[in-house]
Amino acid sequence: MNRYSGELQIILKDLPADKRVNAVGKIPKNKHILAAEIESGKKFRFRKELK
């Protein structure tokens, strides 16, 4: 196997579909600024925003 497994990638722009990749959610554009707060090796969690 030549690919990593169990990793998470946060992409801030649309990419073409790839059958090897599972998309599990979307972050609204108004929350993209929060991605800058995520640092390598630090723990974080996603929470569903209640409306």
Rank of each mutant, 00 (worst) to 15 (best):
A36E: 12
N30K: 11
F44E: 00
L15F: 05
L15E: 11
V21E: 11
I27Y: 02
K43Y: 01
K19E: 12
K42T: 12
V21N: 06
D14K: 11
K13C: 09
D18C: 07
H32P: 03
K31I: 03
K51L: 12
I11N: 02
K42V: 13
K31G: 02
F46G: 02
L34K: 06
Q9Y: 05
D18L: 00
A35G: 08
V24R: 03
L34R: 07
G25Q: 04
V21C: 09
S5D: 12
V21L: 10
L34C: 09
E37M: 12
F46V: 02
K51N: 14
K43G: 00
I38L: 05
E39S: 10
S40G: 08
V21Q: 13
I10Q: 01
Y4M: 11
I38Q: 01
I10R: 00
D18A: 06
P28W: 03
R47I: 11
E49M: 11
L34H: 09
A23K: 12
L34T: 04
D18W: 01
L50Y: 13
E39W: 07
M1P: 04
H32S: 08
I38R: 00
R20W: 05
K26G: 05
I38T: 01
K42S: 14
E49Q: 09
K19M: 08
K13Q: 03
V21P: 04
D18F: 01
E39T: 11
R47T: 12
K19F: 08
K51E: 11
R47Q: 15
D14Q: 12
R45M: 14
S40I: 15
R45H: 15
F46H: 00
F46I: 02
R45N: 14
S5R: 08
